[in-house]
Design a protein around this nucleic acid. Structure first.
Lengths: 217, 217
DNA sequence: GCCTGTATTCAACAAGCGTTGAAGACTAGT
DNA sequence: ACTAGTCTTCAACGCTTGTTGAATACAGGC
């Protein structure tokens, strides 16, 4: 019953390997044997720690989702405490949604980068996008939309949801670091340039939210 | 040597089936046998018309890319002819990039919807996103960025590329119609509501471009 | 009615897949 | 040293995969 420290360590190594491979090649392209080879363990061990390949995939997704939600909740807490009376600016709120991801990358780039690339694929998949993203991120997103509603009282519900949807697409593609912008810009911009992103993404998105709320401005 | 009309027809049926299945499940999840069953033809026929599964995938991507680029070029032509002297507004230019996709959907929804869902997966894949999107869409994107540069002379090159990158993410996710926004909004917004998109996406994106070009506004 | 080339079917190949059962190794507690 | 329980290995299962070569059907030109 009690899991040894060593076995938990191997379990994490399996998750790490699966995360990296799923992120790069997608669920179906990756074979369990590939994963276990990269993890340096026997194939059968995957089925000792996880029920199936699909279960392993879910475990990969779940592992970081909670921490990711926690740091974003904390960031929004901090923004709200900074404004006990007035409402925070829209850009502050959006920043609390995006900047924590940059912090995670700064501390442990490789692993989180794989995870974000995986999320981008899930988000854009008709098979999984609707259900899985909803399952893992809806409560957090709803809280952010609540905060935005206060900062933008003129905005309709539809405008808020669509604006968030555009944010979601821009965010996941950007953090996937596919190398697209490197090619398009001939190296002027780099996918991995996190400072460039933090300087632009929140401002860009906030402007979009505001435009839909107040078309005249 | 001369291909009969009937065989060309089956070839298109194979492409249609492959397009639909690849869009929903991704390249690796789909089997050649599945595709040929849905196309109503023998497995081996896939290898008569195409060199390999991967070659079939490329053919699916290529088939609509040219038409898609053509209608967008035409839309930008029209915008520029409408402004022989002054520069078009930013929102007009962005609209020429996004609205043609809505027109394609309006005429033949099912097929183009599959194609857009496929593009979204490719765009967000580290394996293919960088190379394939560059190959199929770079010349068009460059022309649009040229037009935007005239409308936003204060914008730096980096700001333009990043802004386009955000646009690209928002656009591909939105047209993928994953059902995500339906879930998040409890049915208030629908993925397939093209009018809602055309009323919001160009405005949202244009505001983002402008904010990065003129942070003070 | 034959002949040539295209189009389509059939049956099969080797390789790799996800998954499993049984057997061995290791690490406590006694 | 024995035992109980956790962890790991080995070898294999049945099935599916992408792909192919040979055989058949079908057309049009003579």
């Amino acid at each position: 019953m009690p899991a040894t420290a060593k076995s938990q360590e191997t379990k994490q190594r399996i998750l790490d390997a699966a995360e990296a491979l799923f992120a790069r090649d997608g669920f179906a392209s990756v074979t369990v044997r590939q994963i276990m080879k990269q993890a340096g363990a026997d194939v059968a061990l995957a089925y000792y720690h996880f029920e199936s390949k699909r279960d392993l995939f879910d475990a990969v997704l779940m592992r970081r989702a909670e921490l990711m939600n926690a740091v974003r909740h904390a960031a929004l807490d901090e923004v709200e405490q900074r404004h006990p009376d007035d409402a925070p600016t829209l850009e502050e709120i959006i920043g609390a949604f995006t900047n924590p991801l940059l912090d995670l990358l700064a501390n442990d780039h490789e692993q989180w980068q794989h995870y974000f690339a995986l999320i981008a694929q899930v988000n854009n998949s008709p098979e999984w996008g609707g259900a899985l993203m909803t399952k893992y991120f809806d409560p957090l997103v709803r809280r952010f939309l609540d905060a935005i509603r206060l900062a933008l009282p003129d905005s309709t519900e539809s405008d808020l949801f669509w604006s968030y949807h555009f944010l979601s697409g821009a965010l996941t593609l950007t953090f996937a670091e596919t190398g697209r912008i490197d090619n398009l810009s001939n190296g002027v911009c780099r996918s991995s340039d996190m400072q460039a992103i933090s300087e632009r993404l929140p401002a860009f998105i906030a402007a979009g939210f505001e435009r839909l709320a107040r078309p005249d401005s």
